[in-house]
Design a protein around this nucleic acid. Structure first.
Length: 993
RNA sequence: GGGCUCGUAGCUUAGGCUGGUUGGAGCGCUCGGCUGAUAACCGAGAGGUCCGGAGUUCAAAUCUCCGCGGGCCCA
């Protein structure tokens, strides 16, 4: 009879193993089959958060991918149908910036000169370049996802779905045009993302001026009263629309001595000292800020063309700070986001005296064409000459500069299209109610708070590479039309449609205005790429133009996961789009992951140069090692400090132990030609010995705990339970305690039980571990399971579920007690200075708790073996144990162990013999003998040695596979003189053949 | 500046919701032991202001507040 198992190397090359498994999966289409075989079952819907393909994948991306993979493999094994469509986020400024760098372009003007057509072609190309790296890493790490049919946000079909959804929003009147204040680089003529802004802060000195705004009064002859405001950007005064004070803080009216004359000023009481500096003053009145509300003041300049509302009034606002300035804030809606907001809330007007290059427009004749920062000096002089500059100083603060060209950024209002998310606030909150967040605090914490204070979504971007905003405006009558599909566009276009819906082609498409018959042209903007990815639930299906049923079956998603920074990113954009279009939550469970930090707990970033390269890890440690490290390092929702050393140690221990357990089995199963039985032919678990019953029971208990933990996304808990089982329960206890059962040469029932048990445990363990470490488990499974009736991949198996009938908690508890007693016994030996090899007469277990004693009684054999004692005695009280002969160790209040440490001649001889056997075994190993090789032994020593050896002759021969054992010396053999205790023993061996 | 979150031995961490024996474990270190699956394992030891401070309480790593530090998001 031939063995069904293939031999294994004791030291395995995990990297090569993984490469072989990758090839196997490829060859056998294992992934596709794992999905297909569940078709018709309940669907577990997952949406892949499309990676932004503008850089190489780093460890954080890998973490996200393996967590996704774990959950999806697990759900598949649990019987769900889990299709997985890959996705690529391909639009957006980051892609454009990469291309700009390559081409050496800096401004939008330069891009237009270069040609939008070619520019966008390169953007499209660059995205594919990075995609390759992603595909490789994704495959290598074992993330099973369908990358042959991905959704790609730049595809016409995707764009068409996005257009459709925007039209739905437009039809509901939720799409409007407004202004948005953005950080803007006047030289590059482009808005910067907050991320880019954050890169460019510098300490600079700016002017700090205190300006007097004269309040209007009914009688012009009155002594003028001024509001004293403070600003560090004098040029923005041209755009002043209002002043703001805090509603509840105390303000004062003071008489202040100035060089020429006294003046009456109003400012916050708390700012008096600092703002008035050395000036003498006299407080005339005190009042709260709200008394000032609505007062009108004289404009500083009359240049501004103000549209859409009132101007030059005092407003109240909570954001007014008393930490600096005067407590009176100058408000210019064109140059500050809070400024813009407060004006809008109070129906104030708007004025924009600056053009897109940061120069004053024709509206400001003396300054026309002057760059705003250069106007500061001029404006200060004007104010001074008019006597309304109260004070001038310098102010040191950090201010953002363009990371690319180093120009100071301007906060600058640009026209922008918005989605009125504020009006959907209640729906957003209601939909959030239906979502389970992991970790739970996000639901009402970071995310919930964000929804409570939601702002309208500034949707448009004045850029090139993005989904074109599908709005056409009539040149004659100003009518606005949102195109919701390609067909619609075709029907109204005056020319043929381009093959590509991107700029610049789409900009050529002119529509006939239904209103006046005039020509409609598209607005120039593209849309925020967050809207693209937020549309994934339907746009990946090209809904509603295709796959209507497919979409309905896959909405809402059961599960998504990304890193925590996506809370206001994709997690939000999904909810926002879905709420606006369907008024449904787009996902029901969301797992937010922590970030991967470097070894020192600092975020990995390009600029810090601390990004760990994952490719060497794949080459040296392998994917399973990395996966296991990520799964066990801590809760998935906490940050992980990535340490390669830690990763190696953590995974080595687990992977090696798992491998060695398997290797042990394979080695002996081949020797014994063990072949696995079908379930119905196997020896029933309850007929097997207690160790077998224990490990099976433990396995099933752990199984339950693992499933429970994964369902809660406590992946670290599940992984650690499994690791503990493999290392402690299986390897270090079950196999170590049971190995002699495998060494018995002849066939017997107990050995069969041991083989069957270890076999079953290993196979089941592979299934339990398959979602975590898919490579090694597949490899082991491939060798262990050869039956044609069984699935031919571990990933095609059902996830094991606990069998209640084999769980024996009594036995598990008993074993726990026994393990504690073994530890106590070892300690007693250590305390008494007697090594384990020396047999002892007895150990006495004393407990007042009869139930505990009963448990120990059944497993007393283990104590005998582990503690190397002849007898185990149980007693309810310790009085029968004499103090002199026994070493006592307490396990707890109710359980103690007494080790009899008295040695007689017989025990000493046995100890001596054991030492000799141990030396012989070591020498066999020195000679690299096969486990089954027979040997001849020569020994020499004093009379006691001879007496001991002769007394245990059979024992020695059996243990060392010796056919001959003689006293004497032989220089031809491999010999050594050993020091055992305080005597010398000569031992020599040679193999027989 | 604001919100959320994390902060336990040299390192990685359990426990924290539900306050209550001497705060567990792994790696590393020292000593001793064991070893024919296991560069593995076992025993002992050194190593902790549980980030700091205040409060609640008979009792705080745990609950509350205020700081400090890391992270994320937002200003």
């Amino acid at each position: 009879m031939s063995t069904p198992f293939r031999k294994e190397e004791q030291r395995v090359d995990f990297v090569r193993l993984e490469e072989n498994i990758l090839a196997l999966w490829e060859r056998e289409h294992t992934f596709e089959r794992s999905v297909e075989q569940r078709r018709g079952r309940d669907t577990f819907v997952f949406i892949e958060g499309p990676p932004t393909a503008n850089g190489l994948p780093h460890p954080g991306h890998i973490l996200t991918r393996v967590i996704k993979d774990l959950v999806l493999r697990y759900k598949t094994m649990r019987g769900f149908y889990v299709p997985r469509k890959a996705g690529w986020d391909t639009h957006g400024l980051p892609v454009e910036i990469e291309v700009e760098k390559e081409l050496g372009l800096n401004t939008k003007g330069e891009i237009e000169q270069f040609g939008v057509e070619e520019f966008n072609r390169r953007c499209r190309e660059s995205v594919f370049r990075y995609e390759k790296e992603w595909v490789n890493a994704t495959k290598r790490v074992g993330f099973w996802i369908d990358m042959d049919n991905p959704y790609i946000t730049f595809m016409n079909s995707y764009i068409e779905s996005v257009w459709w959804s925007l039209k739905e929003i437009w039809k509901r009147g939720l799409l409007y045009k407004g202004h948005k204040v953005v950080p803007f680089c006047p030289r590059c003529e482009t808005a910067l993302s907050t991320h880019e802004v954050a890169q460019g802060y510098k300490e600079v000195e700016d002017p700090s001026i205190y300006v007097k705004f004269r309040l209007k009064s009914d009688t012009p002859s009155d002594t003028p009263v001024y509001m004293l405001a403070w600003t560090t950007t004098p040029w923005t005064l041209i755009g002043n629309i209002a002043l703001a004070v805090h509603p509840t803080h105390t303000y004062v009216k003071v008489r202040v001595k100035e060089e020429m004359q006294d003046s009456i000023l109003i400012l916050a009481e708390a700012r008096l000292e600092e703002a008035l500096c050395d000036h003498d003053y006299e407080v005339l009145e005190r009042f709260s800020g709200e008394t000032l509300e609505g007062l009108a003041y004289e404009p500083l300049f009359d240049y501004a063309k103000i549209t859409g509302g009132a101007a030059h009034k005092v407003l109240t606002a909570e954001f007014v700070s008393l930490d600096e300035g005067t407590g009176v804030v100058h408000i210019a809606p064109a140059f500050g986001e809070v400024d813009y907001e407060i004006c809008r809330k109070n129906n104030m007007g708007f004025t924009q005296p600056v053009d897109s290059e940061g120069r004053f427009t024709d509206d400001v004749p003396p300054l026309t064409g002057v760059f705003v920062k250069d106007a500061d000096r001029v404006i200060i002089e004007w104010l001074k000459s008019r006597g309304i500059l109260f004070r001038e100083a310098k102010y040191l603060h950090s201010y953002p500069f363009c990371w690319r060209c180093d120009s100071p950024l301007l906060y600058y209002a640009r026209e922008s299209w918005f989605i009125a998310m504020k009006s959907l606030r209640d729906s957003l909150i209601a939909n959030n109610e239906k979502i389970n967040w992991y970790p739970g605090h996000l639901k009402y914490g970071r995310f919930g708070n964000f929804l409570e204070n939601i702002e309208d979504w500034a949707l448009s971007r004045e850029r090139f590479w993005g989904t074109p905003l599908n709005l056409w405006i009539c040149e004659s009558c100003g009518a606005e039309y949102c195109v919701g599909s390609v067909d619609e566009l075709k029907a109204r276009a005056l020319s043929d449609l381009p093959d590509d819906l991107h700029r610049p082609y789409i900009d050529q498409v002119v529509l006939r205005c239904e209103n006046c018959g005039g020509e409609m042209r598209r607005v120039r903007e593209v849309i925020d790429c967050w809207y693209d990815s937020g549309s994934a639930p339907f746009a990946q299906w090209h809904y509603p133009f295709e796959n209507i049923e497919e979409f309905k079956r896959n909405f809402p998603a059961d599960f998504i996961t990304e890193a925590i920074d996506q809370t206001r990113g994709w997690f939000y954009s999904l909810l926002a789009v879905s709420t606006a279009v369907f008024n449904e939550p787009p996902y029901l469970n969301v797992l937010s992951l922590g970030h991967i930090l470097d070894e020192n707990g600092v975020k990995m970033s390009k600029s810090k140069g601390n990004i760990v390269d994952i490719n060497p890890i794949f080459r040296n440690e392998g994917a399973d090692a990395m996966r296991w490290y990520f799964f066990t390092a801590g809760p998935p929702y906490d940050d992980i400090r990535f340490s390669e050393r830690e990763m190696r140690e953590r995974s080595k221990k687990f992977m090696n132990t798992l491998w060695n357990s398997y290797f042990f089995f394979i080695t002996y199963a081949i020797i014994d030609q063990f072949s696995p039985k079908k379930r119905e032919e196997a020896i029933p678990v309850d007929k097997r010995n207690y160790m077998d019953r224990w490990i099976v029971s433990k396995l099933n208990t752990v199984m339950g705990e693992v499933i429970e933990a994964i369902e809660r996304f406590d992946i670290h808990v599940a992984a650690r339970k499994l690791e503990e089982f493999v290392v402690n329960d299986l390897s270090n206890w079950y196999i170590r305690r049971s190995r002699r059962r495998f060494w018995i040469p002849e066939e017997n029932f107990d050995k069969e039980c041991a083989y069957q048990t270890l076999y079953e445990v290993l196979v089941t363990l592979c299934m339990l571990l398959a979602p975590f470490v898919p490579f090694i488990t597949e490899h082991i499974y491939q060798n262990l399971v050869r039956d044609k009736d069984q699935p031919d991949s571990v990933h095609l198996c059902d996830y094991p579920t606990p069998v209640e009938t084999v769980i024996d908690s009594e036995l598990e508890e008993a074993m726990t007690v026994v393990i504690k007693l073994v530890e106590a016994g070892r300690r007693a030996r250590s305390d008494a200075g007697i090594k384990i090899r020396q047999p002892l007469r007895e150990v006495v277990i004393v407990s007042s708790n009869a139930a505990i004693l009963a448990k120990v009684r059944n497993l007393a054999g283990i104590l005998k073996d582990e503690l190397n004692v002849r007898e185990v005695r149980l007693d309810v009280e310790s009085s029968a144990v004499s103090a002199t002969d026994y070493t006592r160790v307490d396990v707890d209040d109710t359980l103690s162990l007494f080790l009899n440490t008295r040695l007689d001649k017989e025990l000493r001889y046995e100890g001596l013999v054991r030492d000799i056997v141990r030396r012989v075994q070591g020498m066999r190993k020195d000679l690299d003998l096969d486990y089954t090789a027979e040997i001849r032994i020569m020994y020499d020593g004093d009379a006691e040695v001879e007496e001991a050896v002769e007394g245990f002759r059979d024992y020695i021969c059996t243990e060392t596979l010796a056919a001959e054992l003689k006293r004497g010396r032989n220089d031809q053999m491999y010999g050594k003189i050993w020091k055992i205790g305080d005597r010398e023993v000569y031992i020599a061996i040679e193999p027989l053949n």
